[in-house]
Amino acid sequence: MGDYLVLAISAILVNNILLAQYLGNCPFLGTSKKMETAVGMAAAVVFVLVMAGLITWIVNTFVLQTLGLDYLRTIAFILVIASLVQFVEMFLKKSIPALYAGLGIFLPLITTNCAVMGVCLINVNEEYTFIQALVSSFAYAVGFGLALILFAGVRERVLLGRVPRPLQDTSIALVTAGIISLAFFAFKGMV
């Protein structure tokens, strides 16, 4: 149990996918202007990442490794994740329209999200067990959500500041992201 906790904390804070690994920068900047969109995006990522993490783990363990085709991992994962997201989108639209209405716009954005891909690869590289992969995927997704929502809050505040014209919008957002990221480095020694 303790191990899983350590794994989770490490994934959420210490190795935060956005702020420590710098993956998934485009949704980080793109969907963080408003708290509302940030929350929607975070929820969608949790949802997709958990499923993608598990499926890719299965594909890797039972197909790629048994066939000795490890070198095809990246391309296979891309295919699997993309199909998965498409599938989930269709499934939700038919079966849980309410959820689809909430997450619908964000799902396609995630198809090609490197944060998702990154976590799947980490799971495999670290040679996690199935349960570990589950915990890790979920925790990374929570970390993504946490960072995104924090950042959206900060950006809404930045609007109140007097930003020199050349630095406005994306530039100041990147600078801010850097500073938040530095703050996250304080977690480094924890685990």
Partner: peptide, 14 residues
């Protein structure tokens, strides 16, 4: 993947 998706699009057709 293609087959699964095409079946899915039939089954989950709205």
């Amino acid at each position: 993947c293609g087959t699964v998706l095409s079946f899915a699009s039939k089954i989950f057709y709205v």
